[in-house]
Simulated scan of single mutants.
Amino acid sequence: MDNSGKEKEAIQLMADADKKVKSSGSFLGGMFGGGPHKVEEACEMYCRAANMFKMAKNWSGARAAGNAFCKAARLHMQLQNKHDCATSFIDAGNAFKKSDPNGETCSLMISPLLLPQGRFTIAAKHHISIAEIYESDLVDIEKAIAHYEQAADYYKGEESNSSANKCLLKVGAYSAQLEQYQKAIEIYEQVGANTMDNPLLKYSAKEYFFKASLCHFIVDELNAKIAVEKYEEMFPAFSDSRECKLLKKLLEAHEEQNSEAFTEAVKEFDSISRLDQWHTTLLLRIKKTIQGDEGDLK
């Protein structure tokens, strides 16, 4: 479908809205029915233009839509319409998501507007959207971590513990990749402790304690032994898990500096429970601490 006509109409709407905003601030506009009424009309026109730009479904259209929503948001702010202001900034952030990395600027203005209204969940979701931009489009993991942490804090404010844990697990995974092992350990232990008494979630606790143990293992073998014993005591079901049995085999192989036994234990586990890239990366880091080992896990 050719949406060029819609884009032209949107451009004209933007121009008309700009004129209306300018006239609302003039002396004559204030004397003869301008002011807030014209600003409200301009807000509506900017939003209509933004939605027309969105129909273009291309980079330039998305960026134009984001700019239009931002203009509407600023006018809503001027009129003290906090709810409409926040909504327009959210729409702007979503439009910028695919077209403009700097869309974070609009997105970050949302939280101060939403939090006084107690809208922690919406603020959290928006920080997740920003984190996803940094994950996939900009590949800035440090900033992605910061936004997932902020989202987790907001979810905790709403006592949405399950959603908070999902964000924290993202932080834990990325922290371990960046070799921030202590931070990852604290997160995995926290989430594991939060889930082990929940009948619906306790099965996942063994995975979190497994990940925490691998992080310990990279730092120090003795730390890992102590951690495994602690997790077994905290969560008896962990003792019978395949993850715990693998850890004990790996600890024994590492203590004996036996890289072949280490690899065989990993391969045996992987043949039944497929290890993902995160696990493989950490296991390779552990294996390389065995003297003289530069191999892989094949």
Results as ranks from 00 to 15, higher is better:
Glu294Ala: 07
Phe210Lys: 11
Leu108Glu: 15
Met52Asn: 12
Ser162Asp: 12
Tyr154Glu: 15
Val39Ile: 15
Ser136Asp: 14
Leu297Val: 04
Leu247Lys: 11
Gln180Val: 00
Ala68Ser: 15
Glu260Val: 00
His127Arg: 14
Phe96Ala: 04
Ala72Arg: 13
Tyr155Thr: 02
Ala144Glu: 14
Ala123Asp: 15
Gly61Asp: 10
Cys215Tyr: 09
Asp84Ala: 08
Asp2Leu: 02
Lys97Ala: 08
Gly66Phe: 07
Ala265Ile: 01
Lys202Thr: 12
Ser136Ala: 10
Gly5His: 08
Ala92Ser: 15
Lys287Thr: 01
Val21Ser: 07
Asp276Leu: 02
Leu200Ser: 14
Asn67Cys: 02
Phe217Tyr: 11
Asn161Ala: 01
Lys156Ser: 06
Ser88Leu: 02
Gly192Met: 07
Tyr154Arg: 13
Leu200Gly: 03
Glu44Val: 00
Pro236Thr: 01
Tyr134Ser: 04
Gln78Leu: 05
Ala224Asp: 09
Leu201Val: 05
Ala56Ile: 04
Leu284Ile: 08
Gly292Val: 02
Leu283Met: 11
Ala50Leu: 06
Ser175Cys: 11
Glu9Ala: 02
Leu115Pro: 01
Asp140Asn: 14
Asn3Leu: 12
Glu44Gln: 12
Asp220Asn: 13
Val266Met: 11
Ala237Arg: 08
Lys19Glu: 15
Phe89Leu: 15
Leu108Gln: 15
